[in-house]
Amino acid sequence: MLWAEHLARDRRRSVHTVRAYRASAERLTAFLGGHWGERIDRAALARVTAADLRAYLAQRRESGLGNASAARELSAVRGFLAWANAGAEQPRMRGPRVKAGVPRPISPAEAIALAEEVADVAAEPWIGARDWAVLLLLYGAGLRIGEAVALTGDVLPVGETIRVTGKRAKTRIVPVLPQVRAAIDAYVVQTPWPVVRAAPLFRGAKGGPLSPVMIRRSVQAARARLGLGERTTPHALRHSFATHLLGRGADLRALQELLGHASLSSTQVYTQVDAAHLMDVYRNAHPRA
């Protein structure tokens, strides 16, 4: 497909991104073929309207697509249509939005969708691998953004745990999931900068230490494209890490150690968040709620 070749050659997207975006384009053209009862070519793609896209997303939602995934699908097909009809006005359609309100942890699907979106639109494949690794450290290991970007080459090779230096120079041992290890390893293989034991592991585009501001900006742009709320920040991934562990029965004291909280009272806030989440589930599911 020429669209996939364009993404790989001209946009320098990762293999993962090319595969995902190609699949989205193929799903759209297959849907339009059945929807209109005709062969779909570039001329046909120029006729796509917002109503057509709404019908397409409705079909995708029937397969269980959530808000964040639907927003990513819409972003992908918009890019495909813009490429197929360069210079033509694109159908305007607001993406799915996540209900705003009191602070809530984002779901695992939303967390991964956010990290994927940030990585997919990175200027270089190695930067995408870097951002993916950093965000997985926040969601998969509960690190603060400052802790993640402060890691040095000393953590390599990454084993089942890493030593993290948190607030007030307090160190703690944090377990590392295989997916997080794989993300860090992939970044190390792709980075154009030398990995030095005492130097920052994650580098900026020009080789200097990676600034947390760059990750925050990327997340801010990605959440807008996905229709996620303003409270979806890098810190929200750590927040979700804690809440999801607590919801699966983690001990408060153990969670305190994992998060690097100086006092248990800082960790206890997650019991309130988890209770609020359970009430949401109850209201949405119970017939008499």
Rank of each mutant, 00 (worst) to 15 (best):
W3K: 04
R9S: 02
R9W: 06
D10S: 01
S14M: 09
V15L: 14
H16E: 11
V18K: 06
R19T: 14
A25G: 07
T29R: 13
H35R: 14
D41E: 12
A46V: 05
V48M: 07
A51F: 01
A58M: 08
L65K: 03
G66N: 12
G66H: 05
N67M: 08
S69C: 11
A70V: 10
E73Y: 07
S75W: 07
R78C: 08
F80P: 00
L81T: 01
W83L: 05
N85G: 03
A88I: 03
A88G: 10
E89K: 09
Q90F: 09
G95D: 05
G95F: 03
R97W: 08
V102F: 02
E110F: 14
A111L: 02
E124G: 04
R130C: 15
V134I: 11
V134H: 06
L137I: 04
G140C: 11
A141F: 13
G142I: 06
R144P: 00
V149L: 09
V149I: 15
A150E: 02
T161L: 07
I162A: 05
T165R: 13
G166W: 09
T171H: 03
P175L: 11
L177E: 02
D185V: 10
D185G: 04
A186R: 14
Q190P: 06
Q190T: 06
P192I: 03
P194C: 12
V196I: 15
P200A: 15
G204S: 13
G207E: 03
G207Q: 00
G207M: 03
L210E: 02
L210V: 09
M214C: 08
I215N: 03
V219I: 05
Q220V: 04
A221S: 15
A222L: 11
A224V: 14
L226T: 03
G227K: 06
E230K: 15
H235G: 07
R238D: 13
S240F: 04
S240P: 01
T243Y: 03
H244L: 15
L245R: 10
L246G: 10
A250R: 10
A254P: 07
A254T: 14
A254L: 15
Q256F: 04
E257I: 10
L259S: 00
G260P: 10
G260Y: 12
H261R: 02
A262W: 05
S266P: 08
Y270G: 03
Y270D: 02
Y270Q: 00
A276Y: 01
L278I: 12
M279D: 00
R283H: 14
P287C: 13
R288L: 15
